[in-house]
């Protein structure tokens, strides 16, 4: 069966051990975590986790059930099963000399990114968008030297009134 990209959204108890329980389940059962994001929600006792994994249909069903079985997991949803919005944020630090600055500025405008820090020799850029856009932007840097980069990993939310909270 073909492996597909899945965005799994999880609500988990904001307790120590929750993250390692989930990460442990992935490694113990041979699933991969492509990227992962965790942060508290409006309910301080709950964190929301978004992770991206590549696997086939049978495996993803099993994975969702295994995640749901964990005592710390309040709710699980595969966002890719329905209409959803996804975003990722990139922070990119470039080595930028004088003759490269105009070109970088142009690309920043084209991608609707922002320059958030400037020094004599560097630009730091912030960009938000779907993963493809992030990758395209990085690609467009061409020969410009990337000093370092940070990506948030995919964040996802379902469209419309649906929410992960109101299922259980």
């Amino acid at each position: 069966m073909d492996e597909k990209r899945h965005i799994i959204s999880l609500l988990v108890e904001n307790e120590f051990g929750s993250l390692s329980r989930i990460a442990g389940l992935f490694s113990a059962r041979g699933y991969n975590i492509h990227c992962l994001n965790v942060a508290p929600t409006n309910d301080v006792s709950i964190s929301r986790m978004t992770l991206v994994t590549f696997c086939n249909d049978q495996k993803i069903k099993q994975l969702a059930k295994q995640l749901d079985k964990l005592v710390d997991v309040v709710n699980v949803k595969d966002l890719t099963e329905e209409t959803h919005i996804e975003r990722e944020m990139l922070l990119l630090k470039l080595k930028c000399n004088k003759n490269q600055r105009d070109e970088v500025k142009r690309l920043v405008d084209i991608f609707r990114a922002r320059i958030i820090d400037v020094t004599d020799t560097t630009y730091t850029i912030e960009l938000t968008g779907v993963t493809e856009k992030i990758l395209a932007f990085i690609e467009s840097m061409g020969k410009i030297k990337i000093i370092e980069m940070v990506r948030s990993g995919t964040l996802g939310i379902s469209r419309g009134i649906d929410s992960l909270e109101n299922i259980k």
Partner: peptide, 8 residues
């Protein structure tokens, strides 16, 4: 009793 046992 365990949903994750189904079709595993």
């Amino acid at each position: 009793v365990d949903p994750s046992s189904i079709s595993k």
